[in-house]
Design a protein around this nucleic acid. Structure first.
Lengths: 237, 237
DNA sequence: GTCTATACCACGATAGAC
DNA sequence: GTCTATCGTGGTATAGAC
């Protein structure tokens, strides 16, 4: 890979873009594993082998499509947290503001005037429903910075929480958030909230935030956490 | 389909059982979509076509394996709720008890003395990570009764909540729970709670319950829910 | 009814010609 | 850069042996 920046002799970028756009559209419609390279190349009107030439593999294509969607979202989350912390000037930021910074960018991006990105959250929802190993590999990489930043902010706002407790509560928080994002559109696994109010993103956010805030602020029950670290403890899910 | 109960002439059930057991083991190890029918039939030492003969399709096989795991779990949940309601004798059951009835059976089943079932929660975690349409089709069917029963109990325990609010909070609850189950073993998507305490199921349950209870009990923010039901609202995740 | 052998088509990937 | 041809593997369908 000699020239990474801008090397194409002819309409190569055009080809790559066409693949990219076709893939993004099909992924949103059908999910990642369901969408075949043959379907993508047919829609993009390029040769089948062009995908592997330009992207290396289907996995890499998925990764790039996903990156372009997820990057701005997490960027917005951290930017919003930056603003909050700047305004607080050293003091801890209020928990509900932190949670809002984590949750609400998903809403705003969905209203992005640039038409693409309007439904890219579907991609994230899809990704959470994918079985492939590589999803579990690069999703954490993308979220690492977000997790670190929000963890620090929450740690300041919730000084009574142990590190372990905070980690678990963030785990639950991300779980509920992820499920809400995926569930509204793709996977309504258990409950079907269709009958309850609009699937308006803002409505979800406004309901999700207090739920998560209350969970994060909940009192530590008993410190029975030290009860056992014995390795005989079953590893369970 | 004439005789559904018990029809086989010879060792057919044995073959079916062998396929079933091999499939269950491989699914737990590798997930559903990664496990090929050829791998299953090789392990079970049966012919490839036997799967389609006995189960109809890979999807149906997955479904049956999954059913046998999930049935007892949800049965335990509802049995525990039954006991609570009987003890309460008409009065609302305490929220933390309801949540415990929902969450903790996952722990106890994992300690099932009968060795199979010890790690079947991995199957559930796997299922939640599957992209296939049929997962979204029969998972709600299995959870329908659980959702209805727990919804009724929670509705009594939280009389101030509107139906819509309750639905959303249950949605968040199931999300956090599902993610916790899947995340501990299979998909640590965002956070990696390895560094924080044991992956002991009881530890998770004891931390998850107060988190969810607090979220469920959280005060309704503003009744801005009526703000808009206009169809122009973006359907977003 | 049960099981086997085998063929079929779609998939992702890649080598090599242009 | 692009294309054709082809490989290995996947789920599935069926004809026919027992």
């Amino acid at each position: 890979m000699p020239s990474l920046h801008r090397a194409p002799t002819k309409g190569s970028l055009e080809t790559k873009e066409r693949i990219f756009d076709a893939a993004e559209a099909l992924f949103m419609d059908q999910g990642f594993s369901t969408t075949s390279l043959r379907a993508i190349t047919a829609k993009a009107k390029v040769n089948l082998a062009a995908v592997n030439y330009h992207f290396g593999s289907k996995e890499a294509l998925i990764r790039e499509v996903f990156d372009r969607s997820l990057g701005p979202l997490n960027g917005a989350r951290m930017a919003q947290l930056d603003r909050l912390e700047a305004a607080a000037g050293g003091n801890p930021v209020a928990i509900d503001k932190i949670v809002e910074a984590l949750v609400s960018p998903a809403l705003h991006v969905s209203h992005d005037p640039l038409k693409r990105g309007a439904a890219f959250l579907r991609l994230l929802g899809r990704a959470l429903s994918e079985p492939a190993e590589y999803m579990r590999a690069f999703l954490p990489a993308h979220y690492r910075d977000v997790v670190v930043r929000f963890r620090r902010a929450l740690s300041l706002a919730l000084p009574n929480l142990s590190e372990a407790e905070l980690t678990w509560r963030m785990h639950f928080t991300f779980g509920a958030m992820a499920y809400s994002m995926a569930g509204t559109d793709a996977v309504e696994l258990f409950t079907t909230p269709d009958d309850a109010g609009v699937d308006d993103a803002e409505a979800i956010v406004q309901r999700l935030i207090p739920f998560l805030v209350a969970g994060l602020k909940s009192p530590t029950p008993k410190s029975r956490a030290t009860r056992s670290v014995e390795p005989s403890a079953r590893k369970v899910a």
